[in-house]
Design a protein around this nucleic acid. Structure first.
Lengths: 188, 188
DNA sequence: AAATAAAACTAATGATATTAGTTAAGGAGA
DNA sequence: TCTCCTTAACTAATATCATTAGTTTTATTT
């Protein structure tokens, strides 16, 4: 009867749109209803692509982790030492700034233990390990340092996003100060 | 007709119960429906205490910030220098561990710019400023340092909660390493 | 050309927040 | 004690959402 054209949506197309909703209106607005409206289809049709809302969130998290990794890896290319730590840090924070919704989705996976999510996250951890390698930390200290860097980057990004920093003090200067202090500290 | 006993609920009672739901089942389960069920009243009755769900979340955020502040202030009493930074850091992280839902609510205020929310958060910032005072940082460096400490504490807590640290490496040792490295770094 | 799978659909269900209007309980002042 | 008013509960109704079941059309493959 009525024309029901088969659009043939690709997964990446759907995730692009979902990411756009997240960035523009917040992660809570990434509902099946809103996403379907943006795609020009009916909500139940999304069940052909996702196993419900939790599965959409999981796939969006992986999608975000991969995009974040690519940007960090690109920034790290050909740099080393403190400089390398600084550039990946700035890449990380800038990604969170430019894509607040996608970044938020990154840590909102329904099951963080999920294998595919772990894998996507592991690439970023590995990159951090690699970048911190120049500071020859022995054994466990290297792992503590990775946790520290990740804590700083996530904490800084999250607080900046939630309006946790209210003073009129340049944010990029703060980030540089913090990273340099941390690097100086682990270099003893 | 049917007995409609006037319970006379106090705001703190309601927030205690809401916090319990958040800690036990996650912040998303803090719904008017669930909270009403726990209190033995009907959902619409909560509108006598809150201006809808966003207002409940805001009041829960303030409630959480105040509890967090109290625990940190208590820990900081009579200590100074690196030791003081360490104890408030452990107090912060332990609060997030013991009250994951309330802690999460702390940063989930619908409008972080809200005056009352800002005020509750400012007390914690002031305490951090105070504790970092011993490291005589001049001018802006002191503010950068506060942002750094807050970033570390929130980032560490959030990642621990979301399962971001998966290695079998003691978490408390990581926290101590990170804080000590940061302190060493800002002490030049 | 026929068969199969993929991707859209309609219709229906149950849970949710929210609004509107209603009723009982408790305290204050006469 | 009686009256009034505010508070805090209620019932009823609405709109939105995720989700399920079953259906139909399109595209692909045989």
């Amino acid at each position: 009867m009525s024309p029901r054209p088969k659009i043939g949506l690709k997964l990446t197309t759907i995730l692009d749109e979902a990411g756009e909703i997240a960035d523009q209106h917040g992660i809570d607005e990434v509902t099946l209803a809103n996403l379907a409206k943006k795609l020009g289809i009916r909500p139940p049709s999304l069940y052909n692509h996702f196993n419900g809302l939790p599965d959409l969130r999981k796939k969006l998290a992986i999608y975000g982790l991969n995009r974040l990794y690519e940007i960090m890896a690109e920034a790290a290319a050909g740099v080393s030492g403190t400089e390398a730590v600084l550039v990946i840090s700035k890449a990380y924070v800038n990604f969170a700034r430019n894509h607040p919704g996608i970044y938020e989705a990154t840590l909102m996976a329904p099951d963080p233990e999920d294998e595919a999510v772990q894998l996507a996250g592991a690439k970023i951890v590995d990159l951090s390990v690699c970048v911190l390698h120049d500071f020859n930390l022995e054994g466990e200290r290297a792992l503590h340092a990775v946790r520290g860097l990740r804590s700083i980057l996530h904490g800084f990004s999250a607080l900046e996003q939630k309006g946790g920093f209210k003073l009129t003090l340049d944010l990029d200067e703060s980030l540089e100060f913090i990273i340099e202090a941390f690097i100086a500290g682990i270099s003893k």
